[in-house]
Amino acid sequence: MSNATLAVPPAPPQAPAKKWGDQAFKLITLLASLSIIVLIVALGYILYDSSKLSINKFGFGFITGTNWDSVAGIFGALPYIYGTLSSSLIGLLIAVPLSVATAAYLTDLAPVWLRQPVVSIIEMLAAVPSVIWGLWAILVMVPFLRDYIYPTMQKVLEPIPLIGQLFSGPIYGVGILSSGIILAVMIIPIITSVSREILRSVPNIQREAAYALGATRWEVTRIAVLSYAKRGLLGASVLGLGRALGETMAVTMVIGNKSDISASLFAPGYSLASVIANEFGDATTPMHQSALAELALVLLGVTLTVNIAAMLLVKTFTTKETRRVA
């Protein structure tokens, strides 16, 4: 008797409805996430479609070509690719040490009352529109660098073999280095706040382990915190690089807008995003428009690659983390 009742338990009446609700929820979220993929694929396809003319004419030469002449109809993107990559890398080289140091200070060293206000200010910096950064750079930063910092840098660094080349030539103020510096200022907030989250996720027992061995504060930060978090910090940096690559307005205002590849970092350059922004309104011939679309495609490819790399890095970091906690 009791066996029979156990074998056929009364079905809970809500169960099918609940299951249907779950299914619907799953489907909706799936569609939402698919739509993002569709959007990116569609974007890539449209850029590819509109740049067909230029792709067919120049092929791989578009990427290696150094001449960009809209009147003669010759388009080579290398100076812009160089400008984008070099200014972003300079930005990254300046921003990462500053950001990681700031994050380490804010998580482990700063007095508690100081932490939140500083974090808020840093996050506010991220909200400053890029045109304002550009304006500040052109009015304040560039003249200051041109008159005081660059001449000193040139005097000190130019005689050094190999790297001396980077600091040779005339100083205009605007140029690759200036745009790298303004990019650094702009990506410091994002790298700092992501780094801070990563450093905060380092378990306290790691710090205690180092303290208990008689480590000083710096040694604790080095052996227990930074080395534990290095993968995540790398991810944070690449995220910043992704931002820097696509930044348009401020770079356009300080890079000099000259399609040259020069060994000197003081020399003016041009970035992918800046060319598109500057020329698209005036592009009259189909070939010119198509070449600009191909520039956009190249830029999209570079930023997507960098961002995917960043996501993978951060992901491997977090899965390692959860495994350790489990």
Partner: peptide, 8 residues
Amino acid sequence: FQKSNPFP
């Protein structure tokens, strides 16, 4: 410590 904490 309570929880083992070798440096990973």
